[in-house]
């Protein structure tokens, strides 16, 4: 059997309801070895519920959940994972060294303490009580706890919330290093630049479903919108009347256009304005792509409601 073909984590048609609320609604997700998948989506999209299913914290109401081909409620499956949850209040009177030792004791082949501490940059905090650390330091300790068991799969739920830029960059570097060693990572984040910097693939969720799955570039391409900026003598109203132009704004004396057909619009601009300066064409950022995708999903789901 080819081990690399077996996903390290998989959801198939997973459904999870809390009373009347359907948090996960037929979600399919597969995470492969050595891959970093970012789960994106607005609050309440079902990201944390999906992770809860994969960690075996909840049982799905329908569908399959597998961790290394096993039921995640089995401890043998979970011995291969490391976990950093969005919020966890660890015992404040225990020292960082003691927390690391305790967590490492759950695993068959943990890292040595010094290695975990180095990877998460907490060497200087080892003898301090957890409760005396700053929010950012506590986050780094939680990261150290996640990786101390030498996991094959890391769950990182909003790992860089509350970190300053430097600490965030250091954490990203550590995550890249782990992925380089063959560790898979499932990351949820609110920061799109984080997904952009780290992810091989992104999965965008709304209303408990995946509405897009692919590389970061594919996500941008799928939206296909481009932004044109220039200094022009043309009136904004004139440009807005062109059929290819979706939106016109004037910002700091510059014309800012949004269009799906950048080439046509650029040609027209040059033909109509001999004094055109500082022309820039940009693919829309992940943030715009993301906003557009989720807006489409909102619209289509409200259409469905109206139709029903």
């Amino acid at each position: 059997m080819d081990m690399s073909a077996v996903p390290v984590a998989r959801l198939r048609g997973a459904v999870k309801r809390y009373g009347a609320l359907t948090a996960v609604n037929g979600l399919d997700l597969a995470l492969h070895r050595g891959e970093l998948l970012a789960l994106l989506g607005p609050n309440g999209a079902g990201k944390s519920s999906a992770i809860g299913l994969l960690l075996g914290l909840h049982r799905p109401d329908a569908g399959d959940v597998e961790l290394f081909g096993l039921d995640p409620q089995r401890i043998e499956a979970r011995r291969w994972i490391g976990v950093m949850l969005q919020s966890a209040t660890l015992p404040p009177t225990l020292r960082v060294r003691e927390l690391l030792r305790l967590t490492a004791s759950y695993y068959a082949h943990p890292r040595v303490l010094q290695e975990s501490a180095e990877l998460a940059a907490v060497e200087d905090l080892l003898d301090r009580p957890y409760g005396k650390l700053s929010g950012g330091q506590q986050r780094r300790v939680q990261f150290a706890l996640a990786l101390c068991g030498r996991p094959q799969l890391l769950f990182l739920d909003e790992p860089t919330v509350g970190l300053d830029i430097e600490a965030r960059q250091a954490l990203w570097a550590a995550i890249r290093r782990l992925v380089g060693e063959g560790c898979s990572v499932l990351l949820t984040t609110h920061y799109l630049e984080e997904a952009e910097a780290l992810a091989d693939r992104v999965c965008v969720m709304t209303h408990g479903r995946a509405i897009h799955e692919g590389t970061v570039d594919e996500l941008r391409a799928r939206v296909g919108v481009k932004r044109i900026r220039c200094i022009s003598t043309l009136l904004p109203e004139t440009v807005a009347a062109w059929p290819e132009v979706a939106e016109v704004r004037v910002e700091g004396g510059r014309l800012q256009l949004t269009t799906a057909e950048a080439e046509v619009v650029v040609l027209r601009l040059l033909q109509n304005d001999a004094w055109l300066r500082e022309l820039e064409v940009q693919r829309a950022g992940l943030a715009e792509a993301f906003t557009e995708l989720t807006r489409d999903a909102e619209a289509s789901s409200s259409d469905q409601r109206e139709a029903a």
Binding site: G56, R78, L85, A88, T89, P91, T103
Partner: peptide, 19 residues
Amino acid sequence: ALERDGGLLTLKRALPMPP
């Protein structure tokens, strides 16, 4: 009561802590 609230129990359940 505190650890159910603070998420520590959830974390312990997710980790491979022996039952």
